[in-house]
Write a protein that binds this DNA or RNA. Structure first.
Lengths: 357, 357
DNA sequence: CTGAAAGCGCTTACAG
DNA sequence: CTGAAAGCGCTTACAG
C-alpha cells in the first residue's frame, strides 16, 4: 500500500549511489550539478520524498513540536493554535496536537514522548502541574504558554511565555476606579491557575492603591456555564455590584449575557464589565467589551524564539513576559451615574461611536 | 541531550536479549513472566520508552493522522479539532496539525507526507481542491471532512464525511416560509465550496417547492468582515429583506450585529435570521440564533470509522452523510407581521421560552 | 519462550 | 565530488 519510493530505488534509476540521493536532498551537502540533475529527475519520475521518520532516527531531530491544550471553547486557544502552528511551520517544524482530557493525560503524554518530539509547548491554564512537571522531567525542552511554572518547579528547564497578567489586573482596577466605580466585583477563573492568581493580585493591588477593595467575589473556573452561575451569585441581593471584572473574556461574555438577558440590567449603564484576553468576540457588536489585550502574535513569536534557543542550546534558559494594554470599548460607563454609584460627580459624556444602537 | 535509554541498554541491564525487551513492549508477543518482570524493572530504572519513530519505520505504520485546517475563527473548527483529536487519541493515533495558509500549502503538504502519516483528514471548506487532490494522489487515505469531493475527482479513494447540507437548506426554507417570510435573502459563503453549494441548492429548492424564491443574494465568503459588508449590501435601499439565511453561523452572527447595531433593526421583529452549524455562540443570550445543527460528534465518529476502514482496507471505500436538524431559538419571528410580509395571515403566538428579554 | 540476525530508510564520517 | 559502510532504535521471521 505504502508505494512511495525509497532513496535506494532512486539511486538505481539515476545510476548513482544511495548516498548521492541523500546528499541531493540535504541542503548544503556537496553534489555535482550533473549528479543532482540525474537524481532530481529520477526522484520526480518515482515520486520520491525522503522519509522524515528515518531521517529523524539518525539526525536525532524530529522537527516535531508537541502542542498540549485543554479547553478550546475559549476562543483564545484556537487563536494560539493557528498562529503558533503557522509560525512553527514556517520555521520547519510540525505540530503534534494533544488535547488533554484531565483524566487520561499521563498515558497520552508518555505517547507524545515516544515520538521524540523536539520540544513541548503547554498552552493551557487548566493543565495539571503534574503533567507539566513530567514533561520537564523527560528532558525535552518545555515552554509553558500563558502560564507560569509553579514556585517549587522553578528550575532552569521550566521556561514560560506569558502576558504581564499582574499589570493587566492593575490596569483594570485603575480604569474602573477612574470611572467612579465603588462596588466592584471580581469573577475569578481557575483558582490555582497562574493567570487567575496574577490578574487578581494586580487587580486587588490596584484597587488598594486607590483606596478601594474588591466588593464581592465569585468563581467561574474559566467555564462559560460556571461563570453564568457565578454572575447570578454576585448579583443576588438588593445591593448589587456596579462593575464586574472577569478574569477572561470568555467569562465576561457569559456574564454580560446573564446581566442583560436574565437580570434585565444594562451594560454599561447599570453595570460595567471588563474582561481579559481580547478574543475576537470581545469586539463583536453585541458585546463591545472593554478588555486587556494579550498580544498573541508577540507571545507566539517569543515562544518560538525560546523553543529554538532551548533546542540549540544557544542561550541560557529564560522566560518572557509580554506587556498588556487596555482596549477600551463600550462595556464600561463613561461617568458614574448618581443612582448606581451614589457618587454625584458628573463628567462629560463620552459616548463611543461604536456604542450607538 | 536526548538521554532517553534504548532497548539495547535495557537488555543489558536486564541480562536478556534486545528482542526480549521489544517483545515486552509489544502487546501480544510471547514473553515469559520472569523475563517480562526483569525487563519492566530495568526499563523503569532507566526511564525507557520505545522510540515510536524507529518502530514506525519497521512496522510501516506511524499512527499519525494529519489534520489539515484553514480558518479557525469560525468556532466550528475548534470544535472539530477538539473532538476529533480526542477520539483519535483514544484510538491510539496522534494528530499532526496543519494550518493551511492558502499560499504555502503545497510545500507544507509535501512535508506532511514525508512524515509517513497513516491518513489525512481535510477539514476546511476553504481548501483548494488542488491540495485535496494531491493528498489523494499520494496514496495515503484521505477523508474530506465537511466537504464533498469535486465531481471530477470522484474516485474510490476520495471519501468524505459531511452533513446533509442540502436537506439543511430545505429545512431553513420551509421554516422561513412557514413563518410568513417572503422577501428572503441568502448570504452565501464561499461560492465554490460544497457546503455553500449544497446549502444554497437545498434552500432554493425548498423555497421553490413552496412557490417562492430567493429575493436577494450577497456573498460573505464565510468571512466575518465580508459577511458584514454583504449584509449592508443586502439591506441597502428602501425595500429590505424580512428574513436572512446565512450559510453558516459565523456569518449569521456577523449579520445580526450589523442589523442591530449599525442598521438599528430588531431581530426577529424586523428581520429573521437563520444560520448553519450550531456553534456554541449561536446559543449565547445575545444571539439566540435559530440554526441547522451539524452533529459534530457523529461526524467525528464517522470520520474515525472511515479512516480505520481505509487504513485496514477492511471495507470498500464509502462516504457518510449525517442528518441535520433545525434548532429553533429566538432569531426567527413567531408569526408574520402584516407590515413587513404583506401577508395578513395571523397565526397563534408561539413564543419560545428563551426569547423573553 | 528466547536470541541472533536481517532490515526499515535514511545520514554521515571515511577514504578515495 | 563520490561510494561503501556503519549505524540510528526498533520489529519480526527464523531456528532452537
Amino acid at each position: 500500500m505504502r508505494t512511495s519510493a525509497t532513496a535506494q530505488e532512486v539511486a538505481r534509476l539515476a545510476r548513482v549511489s544511495q548516498s548521492a540521493v541523500s546528499r541531493t536532498f540535504t541542503p548544503g551537502a556537496s553534489v555535482s550539478d550533473a549528479t543532482r540533475e540525474r537524481v532530481v529527475a529520477a526522484a520526480k519520475t518515482l515520486g520520491y520524498r525522503p522519509n522524515a521518520l528515518a531521517r529523524s532516527l539518525i539526525t536525532r531531530r524530529s522537527h516535531i513540536v508537541a502542542l498540549v491544550m485543554g479547553y478550546l471553547q475559549n476562543q483564545f486557544y484556537p487563536l494560539v493554535i493557528q498562529q503558533l502552528s503557522q509560525l512553527l511551520q514556517r520555521e520547519g517544524y510540525h505540530v503534534l496536537m494533544f488535547i488533554s482530557d484531565e483524566n487520561e493525560t499521563d498515558g497520552a503524554l508518555a505517547e507524545i514522548l515516544q515520538y521524540q518530539v523536539d520540544a513541548i509547548v503547554i498552552a493551557s491554564a487548566m493543565l495539571s502541574q503534574d503533567l507539566a512537571q513530567q514533561c520537564v522531567d523527560s528532558g525535552v525542552p518545555v515552554v509553558l504558554f500563558n502560564r507560569l511554572p509553579d514556585v517549587d518547579t522553578t528550575r532552569p528547564h521550566t521556561i514560560s511565555v506569558s502576558s504581564d497578567n499582574h499589570e493587566g489586573g492593575r490596569l483594570v482596577a485603575q480604569h474602573l476606579v477612574e470611572r467612579g466605580h465603588r462596588r466592584i466585583a471580581f469573577l475569578a477563573g481557575l483558582e490555582n491557575s497562574s493567570t487567575n492568581v496574577e490578574r487578581e493580585r494586580g487587580f486587588v493591588e490596584g484597587l488598594r492603591d486607590a483606596g478601594h477593595s474588591v466588593w464581592k467575589r465569585a468563581v467561574g473556573h474559566y467555564s462559560f456555564e460556571r461563570a453564568q452561575a457565578a454572575t447570578l451569585e454576585l448579583f443576588e441581593g438588593t445591593e448589587r455590584p456596579d462593575a464586574l471584572f472577569a478574569a477572561n473574556d470568555h467569562m465576561a461574555i457569559a456574564a454580560m449575557d446573564v446581566l442583560r438577558h436574565q437580570l434585565g440590567l444594562r451594560v454599561p449603564q447599570d453595570v460595567s464589565v471588563v474582561g481579559f484576553d481580547d478574543v475576537p468576540q470581545a469586539a463583536w457588536g453585541s458585546y463591545q467589551l472593554t478588555t486587556v489585550v494579550q498580544d498573541v502574535p508577540a507571545m507566539v513569536e517569543a515562544t518560538v524564539t525560546l523553543l529554538k534557543e532551548r533546542m540549540d542550546n544557544t542561550a541560557p534558559a529564560r522566560s518572557i513576559v509580554i506587556g498588556c494594554r487596555l482596549m477600551e470599548r463600550g462595556s464600561v460607563r463613561a461617568a458614574p451615574s448618581a443612582s448606581s454609584a451614589r457618587a454625584s460627580v458628573r463628567r462629560k459624556a463620552n459616548v463611543s461611536p461604536a456604542t450607538r444602537s
